[in-house]
Amino acid sequence: MEPLKIESTKSTPFVDFDPNRKEQYINGKSYPENPTEFFRPIVDWIKEFLQNSKTEVILDLKLNYLNTSSTKVFMSLFDYLESQQKDGKEILILWHYEKGNEMAKESGEEFKEDLNLKFNIIED
């Protein structure tokens, strides 16, 4: 399995996925013009990573801004991770936000609310 590294742009976050470690990083703002095109390889990579008998993943997220489409993608991703946890995988979400960024903080709290996942909200 190959690592996945995507440099950030004005509207897309930096992605740093490596199959040789459990921590996977997404960092930046997310309002891509074509969310499906941008997120498909990311979601596919995580699915493949977990299917390759990896039992533990730490998804380290620092997303300063998510537009509605990106929010929808992360909701689906978290639902998927929740289902994987039921299947015995160990999932941990680290949701970072910068001090003062109420929008990122509140989005994290909303995500966490209905999820049955370890979801830590961290002020940087």
């Binding site: 509605t68 929010t71 909701m75 929008m103 509140e106 989005s107 909303e110 209905d114």
Partner: peptide, 15 residues
């Protein structure tokens, strides 16, 4: 998801 999305969007709009 739709309900939550609307809530998140509303919060974002408020901020």
């Amino acid at each position: 998801q739709t309900k939550k999305l609307v809530r998140i969007s509303d919060n974002q709009q408020k901020i």
